[in-house]
Write a protein that binds this DNA or RNA. Structure first.
Lengths: 187, 187, 187, 187
DNA sequence: CATGAATGAGGTTTCATTCAT
DNA sequence: TATGAATGAAACCTCATTCAT
């Protein structure tokens, strides 16, 4: 793998573990096995690494979600698949997922620069349900519940609080949210 | 107000806006209107400020939640009041609430040092529902949904995405969650 | 003397000896007898030192020249006094004079930011002679000769090529230039 | 043109625009269209480029001046031709001329290493006038005026302050200096 | 209690130079 | 000859902390 990729990889790992400011260029260089100066042959600044990482994974998740939206037509199916894709991404690239959350938290306003924000697709999905008049709650609340739950489910699983298999987690979370927002399971 | 209090106040504001590492002792001193050295008359280190703030607001929220638990007996009432107290705190002390989240994110493991974690009470509440066999989903998932939704609802409201009054937000969120986790609203 | 002044003093000395880029913050700190970090309590950046020095001495020379212009009225007297003031400044603050030349050379276009440029006064003086119809050559050429000669006279004297006393140098240069630009000495 | 020549050319351009220290090997490489490493195939070090450039143009100007001295015999003719050659060089190779001045300024003492310094010829010329007893002022002052005026005339013309054609500038400067140093124009 | 100057460790960045390919 | 990655020293700058006053 190219050095550039390695730098991004190690930076992601460290950023997601320790935080962005807490991670130094030296940390990254050491993890890659090169000197600090070498990093600057590949990136103009630390900030560029920070942004490039966000853009890269933001795009990736965005595209995955987009594909699902295009592929499936049934409302319930679309919804549940989206949840699955979201969690899939989180499980496969936990560092990236954690990192994106940190980034969001600290750079709230700057995020608008980025075009392909996964969040925007979740928003669309919710509005679609709302138009179809099957959403039980106002869309803003639904969005809050959707994104909040997804993040926490991932978090709890990575902390060991939630012990189900990835597949189970995806399925349970999907129907949990579907029921909460749309349908109602008879008890 | 004493200088000590002012330092904590301004630190909280800055931490919640810019992040902890991003806020310097100088920033805090300037905000209070004293010099850097003076801060060390009141606190041994920056870290002490960081911890003391967390402890202070963690305790405060914890005690508020505790009181509600002790006061009310009906299950639904307890649940909905808890949600209300949680959001009340977030609305009244948004900096503190935001700060507690940042703190959590960056200091995951160190949090265990603290005794009175509000999170623990939410956990208890959920387990209680579970014991009463009225929880529709497994408690870990319920907890994820509960905490995640609460955080996002606050976040979206402070970002202007959610425009309801505080009272409305509290009521809607409470029943939204109650329905999602326990009961089922007939559509 | 305050640390701030010392920093400016030592910086000036070093800049004029070695050049601006060739002088490091560490050089300056060592010369003053403090650490590098301490410099930043007094100046925001190296560049600020560079600018402040230029402004300070530029202003000083400007004001001296201005005073002479206001005090004397006879054309020849004004001219010769100006030359004297210029060289006086160069002899008294050779570092400053040398520095101002280096600064000019490297920052040609940025100099326009500064308001009180001594050069502007020399220009005025020459234009005045021109209006009085006593200038033998076109004003632009006169200005070139005036400034060029002044700089070199100082340079050669500080290099030991020119060995006259300061007083002699001032007098000789003044009449040399007066004769060259205005009058003509009968050989 | 060979790569070596291109390197010298671009280096000269950059040095004269931004200064020597301010120009990096990378800048030069980029301007030439090769990589940094490649430069070291042609030059041992950056300093070698710096010295070689100075030597090259110093020699060139020196030889041009020498030729004029050998070709012409009349005192006034020699003087005026010298001035012309000097300015010719400055107009044809403005980068080289500017660069030589920067070099002089920053490396004052090291310049003595070089054998063929144009300055030395101007010095000879002035001493010759002095021996012929036609110099109105002491030779050191004459030299200061001569070199200072030449440099500034070039500078002002390249800055657009002086708008005459090259030919005019050369002629005017030559007689201006001749009159100032030797003869006296009847007003 | 507070100030203001200073320290010193450590951060980001720059850049001449080297070297395997 | 040239490339492109890397080095390593040194530059500028930041900041928690200390300390004399």
């Amino acid at each position: 793998m190219g050095t550039r990729e390695q730098i991004l990889d190690e930076a992601l790992k460290l950023f997601s573990e320790k935080g962005i400011k807490e991670t130094t260029i030296r940390d990254i260089a050491k993890a890659v096995g090169i000197t600090e100066g070498a990093i600057y042959r590949h990136f103009e600044s630390k900030d560029q690494i920070v942004y490039e990482l966000f853009e890269r994974y933001s795009d990736e998740l965005y595209e995955s979600l987009k594909k699902v939206l295009e592929k499936h037509t049934g409302t319930e199916e679309r919804f549940k698949k989206m949840v699955g894709v979201f969690l899939d991404f989180a499980f496969k690239k936990p560092d990236a997922f954690r990192y994106m959350n940190i980034f969001h938290y600290l750079r709230g306003k700057e995020v608008k620069k980025f075009k392909k924000i996964p969040f925007a697709l979740l928003r669309e999905l919710v509005l679609e349900l709302h138009k179809g008049k099957i959403l039980k709650v106002e869309p803003e609340y639904a969005l809050a519940m959707l994104t909040g739950t997804l993040e926490r489910v991932f978090l709890y699983r990575s902390m060991g609080i939630l012990k189900d298999s990835k597949k189970e987690v995806k399925e349970k979370t999907a129907s949990l949210l579907w029921n909460a927002l749309v349908e109602c399971e008879r008890s």
